[in-house]
Simulated assay, not measured.
Amino acid sequence: MCGRADDNFGPPAWRTLGELFGPLGWEPEVKRDEVCPTDPIRFVRRATGGFDAPYGRWGLVPARMSLDEARRYATFNARVESLEDKPMFRAAFQSQRCVIPLAGFWEWPVRAGVKTRVRISRKDDKPLLVAGLWNRTVTPDGLLESCTIVTRPPTPDLGEVHDRMPALLLTKDIDAWLDAPPYQARTAALSSWQPRILTITPV
């Protein structure tokens, strides 16, 4: 599960994103400590000669579905185990995968009967690179681009935080997620991330 995130990157993250994807203007005009579903969020996809990184609605609007219809569904997360089974995500999983950079994400674990808020990020302040899907649809207001965060079961260090986590990618697995056949992409999303890279900070 990932229902709150932030893109308040610092210089180490900007450098890393530039090295990985090119000089695409990574320092935002507004740094947000909390990004919610339906807010604009940045995603990275293949483009001619490299990558581009537009902002899109966080909450996928599938092909042949209107924005009003999509609002009735929680399409901001997509379970990696069922991407090929869900009509909402099947087409995007085949050919429209992306990477969603995050500075961190938020969860609300319950410990000793008390709900606490925690921020999860990398210990080295580099960006989290999340497997995602994107789509482009036509609305009465024009073209709309949207995306969703792919989720997976948690690594052992996050097991007490939530029963799901974003499908985080190590840099070595970005190409597999973006370009490989679906079964290889799914394997990358399920196995890329390793424990002990993240830090959990109560807020």
Rank of each mutant, 00 (worst) to 15 (best):
P153R: 13
W106Q: 10
L102T: 02
P153G: 10
F76D: 04
V150K: 01
N135M: 12
S82G: 02
P101W: 01
P166V: 08
L168M: 14
R111V: 13
P156S: 08
D157A: 05
L168D: 05
Q94S: 10
C147Q: 02
E160Q: 14
P153W: 08
F76A: 08
T137K: 12
C147A: 14
P154T: 08
A74E: 02
A91S: 10
V114Y: 02
G142R: 11
R136E: 14
M88R: 03
R117N: 06
Q94D: 09
D141W: 13
G132N: 00
S121H: 14
Q96L: 05
T75G: 13
E81Y: 02
S82D: 07
R152H: 13
F76T: 05
D163I: 08
V150H: 03
F105R: 03
G142K: 10
K126Y: 08
P109H: 06
T137H: 10
H162N: 00
S146F: 03
A70G: 06
W134M: 01
P109R: 06
V99I: 15
C98S: 14
A91L: 07
G159M: 10
N135S: 14
D157F: 06
L144V: 05
D141K: 15
L133A: 11
T139D: 13
H162L: 00
I120L: 06
Y73N: 08
Q96C: 07
R117T: 15
F89G: 04
L168I: 15
F76Y: 15
D124K: 11
S121I: 03
P154D: 12
K123V: 12
L168K: 09
D85M: 11
P154C: 09
D125E: 13
G159K: 12
I120V: 14
D85I: 05
A92R: 00
A131Q: 08
L102A: 11
L168W: 11
A167M: 03
V138N: 10
R164P: 12
V130F: 09
R90D: 05
A91W: 06
L168F: 14
F105A: 05
P109I: 10
F89E: 04
V114N: 09
D157P: 12
P87V: 09
G104F: 02
L144Q: 02
R90S: 09
P109W: 04
L143V: 15
L143I: 15
A103F: 07
S82R: 11
L168Y: 06
A131F: 11
R152Q: 12
Q94T: 11
R119V: 11
V110E: 14
E160S: 15
T155P: 11
E81P: 00
W134P: 03
E84S: 04
M88H: 04
Q96E: 07
L144R: 01
P154F: 08
R79C: 00
N77D: 11
V110I: 14
P101C: 05
E145C: 07
